[in-house]
């Protein structure tokens, strides 16, 4: 079993994609790469096909929302190379309005529902997705509930105001 180090993977990515790799970090040992959303499929394909890397298992796709950023909506991919037992995380940030990113469902069949879930909760549109509609929420819903502008409780309620802890 070969072992990939985070540095080796990062070098591979940087030599292949250059300045499309925007930033990287290593929180708790997992390499986290922020890249340009226009090359998301190229990255996934490169990692999938490169014989040294073989990140062929898509563990997870989910969204995240940072309302204060210029590009507030994020799509987070967790990939796992079972051959090398190494995980990597990718983030692609998109604008708030009309966020588009290409689908990974042609490469990973399992991305289908994970992307539908991300669309359902964050309104991120996956171009080329075979069946992009809501999955867990009702079809009539008009909002994307996990975005931060939707508070969990009605902010106008006063019976739950907590004067001691200020929340």
């Amino acid at each position: 079993m070969t072992k990939i180090s985070n540095n080796f993977l990062l070098e591979q990515l940087q030599s292949k994609f250059g300045d499309k790799i925007l930033s990287y970090d290593e929180p708790h040992g997992m390499l986290t790469v922020v890249a340009d959303p226009s090359i998301n499929i190229e990255i996934l394909e490169f990692l999938f096909q490169e014989p040294q890397l073989q990140y062929q298992f898509l563990t997870d796709v989910c969204g995240i929302h940072y309302p204060d950023q210029d590009l507030p909506l994020g799509v987070v991919y967790h990939l796992h190379s079972l051959a090398n037992n190494h995980r990597v995380r990718f983030k692609f940030f998109l604008p708030d309005h009309n966020p588009h990113i290409r689908t990974a469902s042609q490469l990973h069949a399992g991305a289908n529902w994970m992307e539908r879930e991300t669309f359902d909760f964050y309104g991120i549109i996956f171009d080329g997705h075979p069946n992009l509609k809501r999955i867990l929420n009702v079809d009539e819903m008009e909002v994307f509930p996990l975005r931060k502008e939707f508070p969990l409780e009605d902010p106008n309620r006063i019976d739950k105001q907590d004067k001691f802890f200020g929340r």
């Binding site: 298992f57 563990t59 990973h108 069949a109 399992g110």
Partner: peptide, 8 residues
């Protein structure tokens, strides 16, 4: 192959 692709 399909099982891996589906994320089983």
């Amino acid at each position: 192959e399909r099982a891996l692709s589906y994320g089983f």
